[in-house]
């Protein structure tokens, strides 16, 4: 398991409008491309690569499925896990069901964690 690498995916996709569009429209292809050519890049360095991290099958599936509940349960950072899916779902949900509809659905799907210690986001 690599919480760091899951977070690196969420971080690098959420901050980039083109990558975010690809992740919205074709998550499977976006995750594959990211694993091959983006994830291994050392951040802030166009030349150097890192050989250290990789996604597990479960992490890859959660990312491909936009499965924010599974990502929360793996200890993905709460801020990244929220903001990337707000970037994808806030507008379509708000257009149909009103402001904050997606954010409330997100909370609803995590109700089974209320009153418990959440999975740690420490990496």
């Amino acid at each position: 398991m690599s919480k760091y690498y899951v977070n690196k995916f969420l971080f690098s996709v959420e901050r980039d409008p083109q990558l975010l569009r690809r992740y919205t429209e074709n998550p499977d292809a976006c995750v594959s491309t990211w694993e091959q050519s983006i994830g291994p890049r050392l951040l802030n360095n166009e030349v150097e690569f890192s050989t250290v991290h990789g996604l597990t099958d479960e992490e890859r599936r959660a990312l491909v499925d936009h499965d924010f509940v599974a990502l929360f349960e793996m200890g993905a950072h709460f801020f990244l896990n929220l903001t990337i899916f707000i970037g994808i779902y806030d507008e379509p949900y708000a257009a149909k069901q009103g402001p904050l509809a997606f954010q409330r659905l997100f909370a609803e799907k995590l109700q089974h964690w209320r009153g418990s210690d959440y999975p740690s986001v420490e990496t």
Binding site: F68, F72, H77, F78, F79, N81, L82, L100, Q103, R104, F106, A107, E108, L110, Q111, H112, W113, R114, Y118
Partner: peptide, 9 residues
């Protein structure tokens, strides 16, 4: 709370 069950109450 952000990204958890108690957000946006």
């Amino acid at each position: 709370e952000l990204g958890g069950p108690r957000q946006f109450m």
